[in-house]
Design a binder for these strands. Structure first.
Lengths: 128, 128
DNA sequence: TAAAACTGATTACATTCGTAAACCAAGCCC
DNA sequence: GGGCTTGGTTTACGAATGTAATCAGTTTTA
């Protein structure tokens, strides 16, 4: 799994494809297409275009297996999510996490259970 | 301040302009340009284009003052940030906030002070 | 009052993105 | 063995984005 190279920028539509391949790496285009059925109404051509672009960007790799291509992520999900999060927080919240979290807390979009879970997470972080 | 209408989608570059106008609403193009000097090397033409697009999108309004236009946001910052955050979290984290926060906690990108602040925020949310 | 300076409007142009259709090669079916 | 099916490659095309240059109107200035 690559970790040194610059993490490519992944577009909205491309995220869906990446998520499928993190879940089941080594899928070919029809398989990815099938696994997106419930969320997106994309034609298989659309999925192939996205796969091709992700390969070009260096986000995906593939091996040929006979005439089919088996795609797999070149970066793990954590790495990509972290990069996207940092970029988002810095763009919208000037890099400050607290105001971001405050947005959710104040708008009561969090259940009591979620709040507990988040507090537990923070506790764990503090112990390290 | 508008709050009923659909919140427009604001692009990366446009966020910078919005942030200036939330800070000092009623600025004209040259003023916005000046306030961006430290962060961006945009020409004033670029800033004017962004202002125009934001007006078109319904994110900004303006009044004429003689020959100059004074721009002001039509949505408050909280509203826009919340919309952007929801969209981001649902795109990248399938709508679940905990994994997002875990990303930051695990990567030790948070100082002890920040963790304390976040916990305090969560406590406040819980009291409501 | 004619030129200079300031401000906004219109037009431009290359990239990226969303969404494919068209085209082509390799197996498979009869 | 010549289509039909399946899988991938190339090309397309409009909207959004980043980044302006040019044009035009107004006010100030020499």
């Amino acid at each position: 799994m690559n970790s040194d190279e610059a993490i490519p920028t992944i577009s909205d539509a491309e995220w869906e494809v990446m998520k499928v391949l993190w879940d089941t790496p080594g899928s070919n285009a029809p398989e990815v297409h099938a696994r997106l059925q419930d969320r997106r109404t994309w034609k298989i051509r659309t999925v192939q275009t996205l796969l091709g672009r992700l390969v070009q960007k260096g986000a995906l790799g593939f091996e040929k297996n006979g005439r089919e291509y088996l795609y797999h992520p070149l970066f793990d999900a954590e790495t990509c999510r972290r990069a996207a999060s940092n970029s988002f927080i810095s763009r919208v919240f000037d890099g400050r996490l607290a105001p971001f979290l405050a947005t959710f807390v104040e708008s009561t979009e969090l259940s009591a259970e979620e709040i507990d879970e988040l507090k537990r997470l923070l506790d764990e972080g503090q112990e390290k």
